[in-house]
Amino acid sequence: MNQKRKLHVRDIILLALIGILFGAIFIGTDFVYNALTAMLTPFGLAPMANDLMMGLWVMAGPLAGFMIRIPGTAFLGEFLASVGEMFFGGQWGAATLISGVVQGIATELGFTITRYRYYNWITLTITTITTTILTFGWDMLRNGYAKFDFQLLIILFVARLISTFIFGGVFVKIINGLLSRAHVLATR
């Protein structure tokens, strides 16, 4: 694909639409999130629900980066999803934007490291790692992870890494495989 291609308005619409369509799919997971939190609370692992679900929230980014291979699309895919969520979705309002920016930068970084040349498992593994580390760092502050015991931190980090790898890696690879076999992105 042409890397010098410019980002057009239809790409922007597409990325925003993917964000809100995925958001609508995730509505079904609110229940899972709350149930997980409630189940894990007695074990002192309440925040783990957050880490286990993380892969879903960050899926739009790597997928966007794979679909439209222009620098910045991974960030934009993730960020526009958070803009949609700000106005129409969750209870977090504008605070969602900050998480959106952090997740967006984290994913984009993975593509930057592979210099927007490789779109394979290596790229997905790197985006998984950058996303896990950066979002985890942000949660150290935002969700007070910095105050947790070290042992708990390790558990949470591993949970997040696995979740991000499954949804932001395996799922993205499968979905992108379907898309490229269906040739629907050929004209872009």
Binding site: L17, I18, I25, F26, G28, L63, I175
Partner: peptide, 18 residues
């Protein structure tokens, strides 16, 4: 939500709409 095909179909819709 755990079926990749659901996301695939959603993206096809998004491509069409966009």
């Amino acid at each position: 939500w755990w079926s990749p095909h659901l996301y695939f179909k959603a993206i096809l819709v998004a491509i069409n709409w966009s």
